[in-house]
């Protein structure tokens, strides 16, 4: 097979840009949420400092091999998701390692990090971690259903499993975007999006006010720093998929930043307006409101 090695440094460049953008964007969203609560909130650069501090902690302890691998799996889930879908459509530099069936791989990578986390948190031996991760898996699974249905619907609509081709079909004016050609699928996917961003009302898994603090209870120092790195990359990588499938993708970086930020803002907006759901409430909510819309979007196609 002929492989263009120049893709590797380009992909790393994408990773670097997305990492920094993710750190700043997460802080900005936190700041917006704080403003709603009439606080000033953290400085925009706070995430960088937290990251340096956690990498610079002197001691760290381990609970076993899976405890090590948990954050590594999580990070590789985020990085893999980012690297196998095109960031910018039509760009030689930022198409990354996208290929014909990358949509299936992306669906898999969305779930991969959570599974790795389940193994790692399970080995930490802390009961709060085990409870948190079983709650998390239940909720993410329920939230993933409508997204999977929406992806099938979009794949049927465009008769392809390649993200690049789906983006190509949406070019030529915003009325060609899936959000206008297949609104039901996008509705189901955007409802599912709320559940996977770990923001209220669906953040009972990680919220410090609930069973402290869920899966990462035992994680500290550089383990936690790895997971923070993933917290910067993974949301952006996931939004890139949403942007490519439903909102016409992006051709230049400013368009990319704007679209990713607006999609992220959707979950922040819902988060500051609505109070937190319990896990069984949120599962019921996904099954009642989001899944039927997803099924309908496939049926009427």
């Amino acid at each position: 097979m002929d492989f263009d090695w120049m893709k590797v440094p380009y992909a790393l460049l994408t990773l670097f840009i997305v990492f920094n953008f993710g750190l700043l964007q997460t802080a900005l969203i936190q700041k917006i949420a704080a403003r709603v609560g009439r606080r000033h909130g953290i400085p925009v650069w706070q995430n960088y400092i937290d990251l340096i501090k956690n990498y610079g902690q002197r001691s760290s302890i381990t609970h076993g091999v899976m405890f090590y691998l948990g954050p590594v799996f999580r990070l590789s889930g985020g990085v893999g998701l980012l690297l196998f879908v095109p960031s910018l459509y039509g760009s030689e530099m930022f198409s990354n390692f996208s290929f014909a069936g990358d949509l299936i791989l992306a669906l898999y990578f969305v779930f991969f990090g959570t599974l790795g986390m389940a193994l790692g948190a399970g080995e930490s031996g802390h009961p709060h971690a085990a409870i948190g991760v079983s709650r998390g898996l239940a909720q993410v699974t329920a939230a993933e259903l409508p997204f999977a249905l929406a992806v099938f619907s979009v794949a049927l609509q465009y008769q392809t499993l390649s993200v690049t081709e789906i983006v190509a079909a949406q070019q030529g004016g915003f009325l060609n975007w899936t959000v206008f050609t297949n609104p039901l699928a996008v509705t189901a996917a955007m409802l599912s999006f709320l559940g996977s961003m770990m923001r209220p009302p669906f953040d009972v898994v990680l919220a410090p006010q609930e069973i402290p603090i869920g899966p990462p209870t035992e994680y500290h120092s550089s383990y936690l720093a790895l997971m923070q790195t993933n917290r910067a990359i993974f949301p952006v990588a996931k939004i890139v998929i949403y942007m490519n499938l439903f909102f016409g993708g992006a051709t230049i970086w400013p368009e990319f930043f704007l679209k990713v930020f607006c999609i992220y803002l959707w979950s922040a907006f819902v988060g500051v307006v609505f109070p937190r759901f319990r896990v069984e409430q949120s599962i019921r909510w996904f099954l009642i409101w989001a899944v039927p819309i997803g099924v309908l979007s496939i049926l009427i196609l």
């Binding site: 009439r38 606080r39 400085p43 209870t217």
Partner: peptide, 22 residues
């Protein structure tokens, strides 16, 4: 933690587990 004093702007946060606290 509340709007009146808001320690978060000085980089101060609360963590619920001793593992992550300094």
């Amino acid at each position: 933690m509340t709007p009146r004093f808001d320690a978060y702007r000085y980089g101060v946060q609360w963590r619920p587990t001793p593992r992550q606290a300094n």
